[in-house]
Computed example of a mutant assay.
Amino acid sequence: MQIDDFVKSCGVTLYYFDKDLWQRPGIYIEDIKTIFVNNKLSDEAIKRVVYHELGHLSHTNELYKNNYFKCENEANRHMIHKLLEEELALSDDQQSFNYLHFMKKHKLKTITDEVMVIDEYYSLIS
């Protein structure tokens, strides 16, 4: 499924903006159920941003304001989960999954990302 179709199936609209207008990769605006993504990103980066922003669907403005780090971590976990689903669906041998290669491929660099990748991987294969 194409990323545009996936976003639409979630009841969200996807628009692209010019990098010169805003210096960030993307944003989800709850009030209008719309994700805006920087049009200068690679296809892989767009997918990461969209999956991350879709992770904010259950976050209200008030929750986000009061629990910023929790919401960002939940959105990152959602992104990692969706990327892992795709990766594992393409694999003939899910047991040979190398989380370090996965992290490098998707530019995941933090210890928190590492913990989430490992956790989500085991969640998906069990």
Rank of each mutant, 00 (worst) to 15 (best):
N39G: 13
S9L: 01
H106N: 13
L63K: 07
Y99S: 05
K33R: 14
C71A: 06
Y15C: 13
F36S: 15
M103Q: 02
L84D: 00
N67I: 02
Q23Y: 15
E44M: 02
K104F: 04
L54T: 02
K19G: 13
L124T: 04
N73Q: 06
Q95W: 15
K82Y: 13
D18I: 15
V115S: 10
L90P: 05
H59E: 05
L90S: 14
D31Y: 10
K105N: 08
H78I: 08
K105Y: 03
E72L: 00
D18P: 05
D5K: 03
N73Y: 12
E120D: 01
H101M: 10
N66A: 03
Y64G: 04
E44C: 04
V50E: 09
H106M: 00
V12Y: 12
H106R: 09
R48P: 15
I27M: 15
V50D: 08
K47E: 06
L41Y: 12
L108S: 08
N61C: 11
Y64M: 08
D4K: 03
M116A: 09
Y68V: 00
D113I: 06
T60D: 05
Y99I: 08
L83I: 01
A75N: 05
D4T: 10
E44G: 08
E86W: 01
L88T: 03
K104R: 07
N66P: 03
M116L: 15
W22S: 12
M103T: 00
L57T: 07
I46G: 04
D18F: 14
Y122G: 09
S58C: 09
V50R: 02
Y16D: 08
Y64Q: 02
K109G: 13
T60Y: 08
C10Y: 08
T60C: 09
C10R: 12
Y64A: 06
L63V: 07
F36T: 09
Y15D: 11
E44V: 00
K109A: 12
S42G: 03
V49Y: 05
L54G: 00
Q94W: 08
C71G: 03
M116K: 01
M79G: 12
H78T: 01
I27R: 15
E30T: 13
L108W: 01
L21R: 15
F17Q: 10
V12L: 07
A45H: 11
T34V: 05
D18S: 12
K109N: 15
K33E: 10
K82A: 13
L84R: 00
N73G: 05
H59R: 13
S42P: 04
N61W: 05
Y121V: 01
Y15N: 14
E62N: 07
M103W: 11
W22H: 14
Y28W: 08
E30M: 14
Y99G: 11
V50Q: 03
L21G: 08
D113S: 07
Y122K: 10
K33M: 12
Y121C: 02
H56E: 06
V12K: 06
K47T: 05
N39C: 13
S96G: 11
Q23P: 14
N98S: 07
